[in-house]
Amino acid sequence: MRNFISNLFKHNKKTSSSQCPVFSQDKTTTRVDEEKGAKQILDKKQNRRSFLKGMTATAGAGASLMAVGASNLIDKDAKEKAALKWEEFFKGNYRVMTEDEKKATVKRLEELSRINNNQNVSISADAPLEGVLFGYAFNISKCQGYGDCIEACIEENNLDRKSNMQYIKMFEMDHGKLNVESGDAAYFHQVPKDDKFYIGTQCMHCENPPCVPVCPTGATWKEKDGIVVVDYDWCIGCRYCEAACPYWARRFNWAEPEVPKEKENKNQHYLGNRKKMKGVMEKCTFCVQRTRKGQEPACVEACPTGARVFGNILDPNSEIRYIIENKKVFRLKEELGTEPKFWYYMD
């Protein structure tokens, strides 16, 4: 059924304006599509959604397509854009998509980026690597509060420049307390200051994430490699996860995010740094677009003092494993049982 609808739109591009595509559909194509549709009956969720789509489509598409097919005045790109947006609106939760569906949605998003912004981006749908569970360590003795990490994060993840969105929060601390609540997050002077030290927070990618079970639509979940991700197209923007996070790690797009075109990072991931829209949640993803290709997150790479360490905690020879097993590490708010994969340590 779904293929039938999308074929309808594709067909629309090629047929001449005088013909009405709805009634001139080739019989063989329909039969083939129906066969494909029959195979898809096994996937119940797909069928129900496409049924809803079909219902609305039959009602609306009949009238609109006749009008559209009859007029050659509407831009070809606009038609394609409308078709892509239609498909995108009715797609399901990425969490339960098949590989083909993931590939399809990524392709559509790339196309939309090209049409809307004249920007050629490459959006990947890399799956988690086998045998990998990501962990992060932060050396409090080394951090000088420079903020190179924040700058790199903003550029890497295409964060909204207008609201100065930052996934990373840096605290200037007085000696005597390790509690970030007592720190100052609004410092803006020469760093490091003599009598202060610096602690950074971001999404801790908990093993027991409190933000995951609270989502009513299941738009946020923990991937197999330990990264807690958000499907930006599935999030309804209720902000319950933002209330549930004990580390203030989640960010909401209160307005449409603005990223200067020339600064947009074109290497994107569906669950990572692709363009978001207003009304959806986002957060640090351990740079999923980089880490699933073997690179370090932007913050780790940018830190000039080497205060940030990243790796696979399942690898007994990794740096992060050494730190967890040999250094005196602690995590924030351990008593909440969230099991964050972000450890702090000191020399």
């Binding site: 119940k44 969720k45 129900r48 959604r49 809803l52 609106f89 399901g92 939760n93 969490r95 339960v96 079970p213 609270v214 989502c215 009513p216 639509t217 299941g218 738009a219 599935w234 999030c235 309804i236 923007g237 209720c238 902000r239 319950y240 909401f252 797009n253 207003k278 009304g279 959806v280 949640m281």
Partner: peptide, 26 residues
């Protein structure tokens, strides 16, 4: 209050993903 009210259908079980019984909001 919702950021994306047009996506409220995502809550419907079957065509959406209804995170029950985990989510208290569900």
């Amino acid at each position: 209050d919702m950021g994306g009210p047009e996506r409220a259908w995502h809550l419907l079980p079957g065509i959406g993903y209804f995170n029950w019984p985990e989510s208290m909001l569900a």
